[in-house]
Design a protein around this nucleic acid. Structure first.
Lengths: 101, 101
DNA sequence: ACTATTTACTCTGAATTACAGAGTGTCAAG
DNA sequence: CTTGACACTCTGTAATTCAGAGTAAATAGT
């Protein structure tokens, strides 16, 4: 008999409590600042920084600096790679959990 | 103005790639042996053991030994606590990801 | 009957990750 | 000109994840 294929694994970068929420937040809002995220998710600075770093390193999130001479602020958003990774992640999850996407 | 309440956090025990799949597998199948899980999820022994240990410690999974004199086999299943934790987890995820549960 | 293999786990230790709090630089107010 | 807030970044520690080695019992082979 054919042995059933192993379940499709979940993206490790995205399937982590804080990062899933960052990605979801950005997916629905489009863009956010460090402080937006920090307040929305109730995180410490260091923790948020570490997760953003990983998301940027992975290529899922891009940042854009606004204001050269004034106090600069960074806006974060999902990259197109990040968007499609998030999409596939949601699909995989839906199928594993048996919910309608 | 009322500041929006922080997003509801995701259960750390359940929101981990392997454990989410173990819970989902048990939620749909009811019961499984160590080897069932190992094959279905394509895991190494040590890795599966570590995750099962955590799930049992947390109280989400209960084990039952079958066969006193014959080669014993352990069956794992979600406890009622595990079931409701999994339910809330799926609901929380659905609301965060904006999908219909 | 005795040895080898398989099954069903458990243990150990190394690598990676998650996180809090301290630190840095800039700006604005008193 | 000092104090405080904002926008991050860095560092160290604790916890987590994982593979492979180890153990014990049962079955298979000769």
């Amino acid at each position: 008999m054919a042995k059933s294929s192993p379940m499709l694994a979940l993206d490790k970068v995205l399937h982590q409590p804080i990062r899933t929420q960052i990605a979801a937040y950005l997916a629905s809002r489009g863009e956010a600042t460090f402080t937006d995220l920090k307040n929305a998710l109730a995180l410490t600075d260091g923790n948020l920084d570490a997760h953003m770093k990983k998301l940027v390193q992975t290529g899922y999130i891009v940042s854009r600096k606004e204001g050269e001479t004034v106090r600069p602020q960074t806006f974060y958003a999902l990259s197109s790679e990040g968007k499609s990774a998030f999409d596939s992640y949601v699909k995989a999850l839906s199928s594993i959990l048996g919910i309608a996407s």
